[in-house]
Design a protein around this nucleic acid. Structure first.
Lengths: 217, 217
DNA sequence: GATGAGATTTCGGCATACCGAAATCATTGC
DNA sequence: GCAATGATTTCGGTATGCCGAAATCTCATC
């Protein structure tokens, strides 16, 4: 059991718990992977038989130690490839995902490590997501969701979880990029939008954006 | 019909006729691909239905215009990847094939062209095999097999068709590498081996080696 | 012109990974 | 405590690509 399908499943399970941990259900997994529920049930059974996940019928799905290791390996591959595409091949953030999704299954360990080394062994990808090390170590910065930040909180942007290219462009133009220093000036009641100071000025960010931006604590 | 299997089949058919043209039979194809004859028969039927090959039952197999275009595209991908692995990632000649075999199916056109451009759009791979251009143009140098060369023939090495790493190392140490100037000094009767002058001295090359080295005409 | 060797094709089967429909389960609301 | 709802699982089925064994064809040889 080491098919590309298996790799995709464990990676999807891993992602579900990466930033806010709660076990994943078959239907959530099916939605994320774009598959029928019945397909996921069958595959999860096989993954369980292969020792990659824990799953009792009608229960939630959790990775075993072995499954988590495989997932972390895949995440490393995916994010190294994304970083490489952006830094060396002129891809934009929104263009890398599909290509990386395929390549992460095709590169040998040797080539992947060589690519990572040529990039200086980066520790985060273009979105700020941590890139696991070769040995599976994941260093995740202490981060606060902008939406949860206290009034007056100041911090640098460590992660931008949005995939919408238009949104990313807007943020970049507003002075919101990885490592940019932000300060939370205020919170508009009802609208849920946040007023934020950047290096160059002040911006209002809507609630969904505030759910996508993470700051240093 | 554009599966990785189809790509492998048309590429194998193409290779068969690349340096000495004769149509390929199902059993030759099966041997080259490491598959059962029955599998090849079935797949060829599908390729024919898809318009990639001509094939009447019990006859030879030939590429259609469309099949040849797909094959050339795959050859380009394979050779660009091999060149990239050797030039940028420290692979040796004998180590690139398996990796390239997988990657050639996984790279998008955009990424492949970007990689080729980063290498200066090379026209030949580490073995001297021509790399087809983006538009499918193949420029093959006029070449003479060393084994067929006239006595006194002088020319530069344009292709080394051997895959054996020990052999390649021996050749490199003997002054036989791509672009090296050689002169055919003599031919030993019966043994079939050739005496050749290199920049640094004189070497005897056995008949199988002489079947693998190509010189400018 | 028949025959037999060797290549080719046909046939039934297998594995993977997917689907929709039907059956089953768990839990919430009454 | 029970029914109904929504999630989960089971079941039959599909497509691709592979295999070995059996049937069939071709062609050289006699």
């Amino acid at each position: 059991m080491q098919s590309t399908a298996a790799e995709d499943y464990v990676k999807a399970i891993y992602h579900h718990t990466e930033w806010q941990p709660e076990p994943v259900t078959p239907s959530q997994l099916a939605a994320r992977l774009g598959l029928a529920n019945s397909t996921v049930t069958e595959m999860v059974k096989k993954l369980a038989a292969a020792g990659l996940v824990h799953h009792r019928p009608y229960g939630a799905i959790e990775l075993t130690r072995e499954g988590a290791a495989l997932a972390v390996r895949q995440v490393r591959r995916h994010r190294v490839v994304e970083t490489w595409l952006v830094e060396r091949h002129g891809y934009d953030w929104d263009e890398v995902h599909d290509e990386a999704e395929i390549l992460e299954h095709a590169l040998s360990d040797r080539l992947l490590d060589s690519i990572a080394a040529s990039l200086g062994d980066p520790v985060r990808d273009p979105h700020g997501d941590p890139i696991p090390a070769r040995d599976g170590t994941v260093t995740r910065p202490d981060a606060v969701l902008l939406a949860d930040a206290q009034l007056g909180h100041e911090g640098a942007v460590v992660r931008i979880a949005d995939d919408d290219p238009a949104m990313l462009r807007f943020l970049a133009e507003s002075g919101v990029a990885l490592d940019a220093a932000l300060a939370v000036l205020g919170q508009k009641p009802y609208s849920g939008s946040m007023q934020v100071r950047t290096a160059t000025g002040t911006v209002d960010l809507g609630p969904d954006v505030a759910q996508s931006i993470w700051l240093t604590a």
